[in-house]
Each structure stands twice: as structure tokens, then as C-alpha cells.
């Protein structure tokens, strides 16, 4: 165990130099995207790799999985924060209440991971929501559905990679709330679609996704390059 701790320490110190370089780029992106309500627009032509072996290192072991969850919660929290800031046209008070509650849950998840990870936490990700029309209900709820279903499949698919029973329980405490969100969003889009053959198999088991599968879907919304190559598998 000592050896692993030392490795982690070494990785972290290597990381520091990398982080500061990364931060310079982040600052630039924040500056570049400052006009868009805190959302940086993706730089055209910014090439991203598909194998998630370069960029911001999520880390290894349980820390890596927690950072992976933290990254997803950052994405969700940023999305719902924007939804609350710029509600879609014709939003009802019920839907506004629901979406504000979900925002609060996702922000709490994000802040929890940030606090729990401490010095091991990855920095804030730069997001790109340019594919979402925040004035349009269909666009917003469609994106919300994608985020929630993705989140559930991510937690379900990463559970077995977690070594600590406490962390596994924490992930379990969060994923069922994400599933509740997912069901609600799907019902808002079309009542009765809280579960269905697009997300469960013939045994009524929900689909799962590996971190690479999840990041491949999420990268459309994330500017920051993410390195998942040290995650357990």
C-alpha cells in the first residue's frame, strides 16, 4: 500500500507542473469565452484525441474514479446552472422548480467531490454547450436526458472498479439520485418513458458504460482534454 501511495505522490508532483501549464490554457479559454455567460466556446479546429490518453490526468485507483465522477458532475452542474440562468421559452413553474432542484443536487455533488478529493481533485473543466439551444425546451430536455442517462450508465459501469467500500456506497448514494433525475426528465419529455428498452435489457437491467465509452459521448460538451489512461480497468 505504501508503494502505491508513493506512486500517487510522484504522479501528483509530476502533475503539478502539468497543471500549471494547463491552467494557463484554461485562463486563456476563460478569457476567450468570457462573453458567453461563463461558458467557453470551443476553439474551432481544436483537435482532440479519441483514446483519452493525453490531457488532464484523472489519476489512478479510487482517486481516478472519483475524479471521473467529479468530471461528470462538473458537466451536469454547469449545464443545469446555465438552464437556471437562462430558462427556456415558456417554462412552467413546475418544470422550473424541478430543474432548479436538479441544479442544486448536481452542484452539491460537484462540491462534494471537490471537497472530498482535496488536493487530488482535478481542476474545473471547460465546457462547451454550443450544441444546446438553451431557449428551446426540446433542446434543453434532450440534453438533460442525455446527461442523466449517461451519468447513470457511468456510475453503474465504474462501480466494480472502486476498491473502497465507503466510496462504493457514496457512488451508490449518488447514482440512484441521478436515476431519479433521469426518469423525471424522460417523463417531462414524454410521460411514461422513465424506463424503456433503450436503456434496459431483456432482464430489466440498466445498460452500463465504461469510462472510455462515457468520455467519448461526453467530449462533445467538454473542451478540456481528459486523460483516462491511468484509471483502473
Amino acid at each position: 500500500m505504501k508503494i502505491f501511495e508513493k506512486d500517487d505522490q510522484e504522479l501528483l508532483s509530476e502533475e503539478k507542473g502539468f497543471f500549471s501549464k494547463k491552467l494557463q490554457r484554461r485562463n486563456f479559454l476563460q478569457y476567450a469565452g468570457a462573453s458567453a455567460a461563463g461558458i467557453a466556446l470551443v476553439a474551432a479546429g481544436c483537435k482532440k484525441d479519441d483514446d483519452f490518453s493525453r490531457g488532464l490526468d484523472l489519476g489512478s485507483g479510487d482517486i481516478g474514479i472519483l475524479n471521473y465522477a467529479y468530471a461528470l458532475e462538473q458537466l451536469e452542474a454547469a449545464f443545469y446552472t446555465q438552464v437556471a440562468l437562462t430558462p427556456y421559452t415558456g417554462i412552467s413553474s413546475t418544470e422550473s422548480g424541478y430543474l432548479t432542484s436538479i441544479r442544486d443536487h448536481e452542484v452539491a455533488h460537484r462540491e462534494f467531490f471537490k471537497a472530498a478529493l482535496g488536493n487530488s481533485a482535478i481542476p474545473g473543466l471547460q465546457v462547451d454547450f454550443s450544441s444546446i439551444n438553451f431557449t428551446d425546451r426540446t433542446s434543453v430536455l434532450g440534453a438533460a436526458k442525455a446527461f442523466e442517462d449517461l451519468g447513470v450508465s457511468a456510475y453503474n459501469g465504474a462501480g466494480y472498479l472502486i476498491k473502497s467500500a465507503d466510496y462504493l456506497t457514496l457512488a451508490g448514494k449518488i447514482v440512484s439520485v441521478e436515476a431519479r433525475h433521469a426518469a423525471l426528465i424522460r417523463d417531462l419529455i414524454s410521460n411514461g418513458t422513465f424506463v424503456g428498452s433503450d436503456i434496459i435489457d431483456a432482464n430489466a437491467l440498466e445498460i452500463t458504460r465504461t469510462p472510455i465509452e462515457v468520455l467519448s459521448i461526453a467530449k462533445k460538451y467538454v473542451v478540456t482534454e481528459i486523460n483516462a489512461s491511468n484509471l483502473p480497468s
Binding site: 453503474n156 439520485v177 441521478e178 436515476a179 431519479r180 424506463v195 434496459i200 430489466a204 437491467l205
Partner: peptide, 18 residues
Amino acid sequence: VLTAALSIHSVEARHASH
């Protein structure tokens, strides 16, 4: 087994939500 249990767990949560 854990993955299967988690995959049932989230379906129950979806039911509860509805």
C-alpha cells in the same frame, strides 16, 4: 454481480421516481 446489482438498483430508482 456488483454490476448487475447496480443495474437493477438504478431501475428501481427510476420506478421510484415515476
